[in-house]
């Protein structure tokens, strides 16, 4: 086995980042003549394996041990480690999901093999493995290489690969036996829940004015609110604005907030970190006002203004009234 993709369960379906990881694996396999297999774990392993078997790969390994019927970092680490030890894949691919953030570093430590996390691109060239990774809050990119023998653990940032490009096929499903002692699981998990509270649905908003940390302080929020009201837009924000208590969490857009796709997203003092961008990149028109000409938000903006929002926005509201 050359490439092993570990697929994550998302309510009985393959997590969308897993589909993107399959595309990553298929494209590497194609250029390097490598074989691809995948691993599914847990109580929905039957559904996941039949879904995975429709894609072009060799084997789908299915692990249904009771100890990993639901996720725990200790359990998953042990399962994937045992599979790696038995199958000796060179590359183990993951989508960079919250679950992967939680247990793959542990696997990396247990194997003492590198975890090239959150890659936006990946290539193997004349035997050299290179992962491209965003650093310094997406202001810079790095080419990162492993310095030791494989296996290498690699996770991909959302949208690094397009799941529309997945190649169909038919793969062999194998029941895969893993056993270990229950005492290695040191955490007990309760049921996932959603916080109840105020509700604000931004997903169907047509116009959005969104504030980031660049607004400076809570007392400045009305500047953005005023613009939003003037043009009949909804108000949203980045995470730090919520973390600082300047706006309630229902306003947050991004990977841990809402995903929006308005006709216009006006980003005020938002740097454009990936966790924010995943929640708004579907907007038809992105307008950004930011005083830093190198802010990553300008890479996705249709219209950009380099300037001080505190100066521009009040005048803009005035002019639009």
């Amino acid at each position: 086995m050359d490439i092993l993709i570990v697929l994550e369960d998302s309510s009985g379906k393959i997590h969308r980042l897993g589909l993107e990881a399959i595309v990553a694996a298929q494209s590497l396999a194609n250029s390097q003549k490598l074989s691809v297999s995948s691993l599914v774990i847990g109580m929905n392993a039957d559904d996941l394996s039949s879904e995975a078997s429709q894609y072009n790969m060799d084997r789908v390994l299915k692990v249904k041990n009771d100890l990993v019927s639901s996720y725990s970092s200790d359990g998953y680490t042990e399962v994937v480690k045992q599979v790696i030890e038995r199958e000796s894949p060179k590359y183990i691919f993951f989508g960079h999901s919250y679950q992967v953030r939680d247990y793959v570093p542990k696997l990396s430590a247990r194997l003492m093999k590198p975890f090239l996390a959150d890659s936006v691109a990946f290539e193997v060239n004349e035997g050299l493995t290179v992962s491209t990774k965003q650093m310094y809050n997406a202001k810079l990119l790095s080419s990162t290489v492993p310095d030791c023998e494989p296996p290498y653990l690699i996770s991909f940032q959302s949208a690094a690969f397009n799941s529309d490009n997945i190649i169909l096929g038919s793969a062999q499903i194998e029941d895969y036996d893993i056993s270990f002692d229950s005492s290695i699981i040191k955490t007990q998990s309760e049921e996932p829940f959603k916080e109840s509270g105020e509700d604000l649905d931004l997903t169907s908003a047509d116009l959005i004015v969104s504030v980031g940390r660049g607004i400076g302080k809570q007392e400045n929020i009305p500047i953005a609110k005023d613009l939003a009201e003037t043009i009949g837009a909804d108000l949203s924000s980045s995470r730090p604005v919520v973390d600082s208590g300047w706006l309630p969490s229902v306003h947050q857009v991004g990977s841990s907030g809402q995903s929006v796709a308005p006709k216009m997203y006006l980003a005020l003092g938002i740097s454009g970190a990936i966790q924010h961008v995943v929640g708004m990149k579907g907007a038809k028109n992105i307008v950004a006002i930011n005083k830093d000409p190198d802010a990553p938000i300008f890479e996705i903006a249709d219209y950009g203004v380099v300037g001080d929002l505190l100066e521009i926005v009040p005048k803009l509201s005035e002019a639009l009234r």
């Binding site: 202001k139 810079l140 290489v145 310095d147 890479e299 903006a301 219209y303 203004v305 300037g307």
Partner: peptide
């Protein structure tokens, strides 16, 4: 010994055509 290392650090190239709006505050508005 390291297990992974940065071979190169660089600035991303801007692939999207962004219309930059410039000038005095009045012009920008």
């Amino acid at each position: 010994d390291t297990f992974q290392s940065v071979k190169r650090l660089y600035s991303p190239s801007n692939s999207k055509e962004t219309v930059m709006i410039e000038g005095s505050t009045e012009d920008i508005v």
